[in-house]
Amino acid sequence: MDIQAYIQSGIIESYILGLTTAEEAAEVEALKLQYPEVNDAIHEFSLLLEEHALKNSINPPPNMKERIMAAIREEDLVKPPVLKKRDNEDYFAITQNSIRPWRMAAAAAVILLIVSAALNFYLYRQYNNKNEAYQALLSERNTLQANNQVYQTHLREWENAAAMMADPGMATVKMNGIPGKESNMATIFWDTRNKDVYVMPNKLQAPSAGKQYQLWAIVDGKPVDAGTLSPDCTGVCKMKNIPKAEAFAITLENAGGSTTPTLATMLVHGAV
């Protein structure tokens, strides 16, 4: 082999600049061990290249050194020692992108933070919605309970009324509206045994302020006070004990009742 021709072919320069194929590089490395001239040629061009590069060097920004030293210290903390490579192929190995572990960690932390914040916001909104729904349910329940109590009261009143109507010892006196007041109506339940009187205001308008309904028993042609109707009497209300009467009537009197009925305000009347 003409080693001088080989050296002058430019293969040495190609090899040093990393422009040879793997086979060509292996050939140069083999011949280098065999021929000192090849070794000298490699050394010569490497040195020329290095001198040229030093002459043409461009200084990096001054902050780069500190940045790189920091990166290296960082690297040493987290990187286990590099294992020795098996063969020579890595001499001109294509470099891989190094992923710096701390960057990965920082990125992961930021992503976690964002996810966590979003989740917090989402859960907070859920909590608020649920809380509002709960409050709405609570007030609805209170309304229903109040309504229920109203209905229970009404039911008790009607049960009482029904019991009285069914009682054979109870006399019923229906008081219809007098001419001109036909829209009014009330019923008297009169216990024939103990003479207790109960009134049920079936159709009586709520009295205006300062006024009250008063029940009268007509005894021997004369009106006898049988008590005033409480404003909250909606069902059957107990009145005074009347031993004897031919008829009953209701008038609208000033609050507290009167000793004699105001005939002009009579609403209903019914004979026994």
């Binding site: 990096p60 780069m64 940045r67 790189i68 990166a71 290296i72 690297e75 990187k79 590099v82 890595d90 470099t95 992108n97 190094s98 710096r100």
Partner: peptide, 11 residues
């Protein structure tokens, strides 16, 4: 430049 010097240090 940083990548290269880190790589030099590592390898």
């Amino acid at each position: 430049l940083q990548e290269v010097f880190v790589k030099i240090w590592r390898q």
